[in-house]
């Protein structure tokens, strides 16, 4: 009985949380005054999609993937080339990006069966660099280092998403859908297996799990999320070139994941937001802003390895407990009198 009311309460709490989050997302463009601020928010949304995917493989199954920039780039180029050279609608471009993610995820998943730790990380870096170099040198298709210009905006039945605010709402829908899928997957049988793979891969095999197909699935999910985000990015910026998809971008995604806390979907959003917004705020320090940002991240990695958000929640919980205890004691004393 108690258990039932507990889950009911949890459900109520979740609904309230989701509603507040949705309200904040809806109102945000009215609070933010400049286009520039909304553009930063759009970046947060796009990066959130990538980190949601990365969470499956680095966060849940615990395999280091430093090739997300490559996935991101493939998604971006697939839709950009289709839209500019062949005049294909960005929506079909999105499907192309998903197919691209499917192929890449399968391809990258195979080495992950044989490689572990540093070697897998190096392989994924290699993949990402190959993508970037191909993009830079295959001039006839990708435009080489000059990149692709005039990528059209998304449009729906004549309505063009051409301002930052309009794109913001469009991307918010994508992110909401991405979060929904990520939650469903993380809560499913698969999600549990991903987590147990990080814990003890041998024991997973003895539970009757086909580890090979699980690892490939995790990579595929990650690649699909990455490619979708890349496609959104292409139509958001309107211009892409190979120099935006360097290893810096991949490490940034990993930092987002780490800052948010491995394995948590809410943490992913938090991480993407902090790592995108914080440097913008720190710009007041001009030349030193990157230095300060990196110091903060390093200190965070040492003192809050489980993620900043969880460290914060822990502190708040402790404070609440202390307060309750105090109330309890004073309450008892009052009763005694």
């Amino acid at each position: 009985m108690e258990k039932k009311s507990n889950t009911m309460n949890n459900k109520k709490r979740n609904i309230i949380l989701i509603c507040t989050a949705a309200a904040v997302v809806l109102i945000l463009p009215w609070i933010l005054t400049t286009d520039y601020q909304i553009m930063v928010m759009n970046k947060v949304l796009i990066y959130t999609v990538v980190v949601l995917g990365l969470n499956f493989i680095t966060g849940l199954t615990g395999q280091m993937n430093l090739g997300t920039a490559g996935m991101f780039a493939l998604g971006a180029y697939a839709t950009a080339v289709a839209a500019t050279s062949y005049g294909i609608s960005p929506w079909i471009g999105l499907v192309l990006a998903i197919v691209m993610g499917l192929l890449v995820g399968r391809g990258l998943g195979y080495p992950s069966l044989r490689l572990k730790g540093v070697y897998l990380a190096l392989t994924t870096i290699g993949f990402s660099e190959v993508v970037r170099l191909v993009a830079a040198n295959w001039v006839s298709v990708t435009g080489g280092t000059t990149g692709i210009r005039n990528i059209p905006y998304y449009s729906l039945a004549g309505y063009v998403f051409d301002t930052q605010t309009k794109m913001y709402y469009l991307f918010a829908v994508f992110v909401a859908f991405g979060i929904f899928c990520a939650y469903r997957l993380a809560d499913s049988k698969w999600g549990r297996i991903f987590k147990s793979l990080r814990d003890n891969a041998d024991a997973v095999e003895m539970s009757g799990v086909n580890i090979a197909s699980c690892k490939i699935l995790a990579f595929t999910v990650c690649a699909i999320y990455g490619c979708i985000a890349g496609a959104l990015y292409a139509h958001f910026m309107g211009y892409i070139n190979p120099s935006s998809f360097t290893i810096d971008l991949s490490t940034n995604f990993v930092i987002m994941l780490m800052v948010g806390g491995l394995g948590s979907v809410v943490g992913n959003i938090f991480g993407a937001a902090v790592v995108t917004i914080l440097p913008e705020i720190l710009r007041v320090f001009e030349n030193y802003y990157q230095l300060i940002f990196c110091t903060i991240v390093l200190v965070g990695a040492i003192f809050f390895p489980e993620g900043w958000m969880f460290a914060g929640i822990k502190v708040i919980r402790k404070m609440v407990k202390k307060l309750r205890k105090r109330e309890h004691i004073t309450g008892e004393m009052g009763g005694g009198e």
Binding site: R192, I193, K195, S196, R198, D199, N200, D202, A203, V204, M206, S207
Partner: peptide
């Protein structure tokens, strides 16, 4: 070889 970071119940469910 159990799953140390999962609860006992989750361990059983994995089985």
């Amino acid at each position: 070889e159990i799953f140390p970071k999962m609860t006992v119940l989750e361990n059983l469910e994995m089985g």
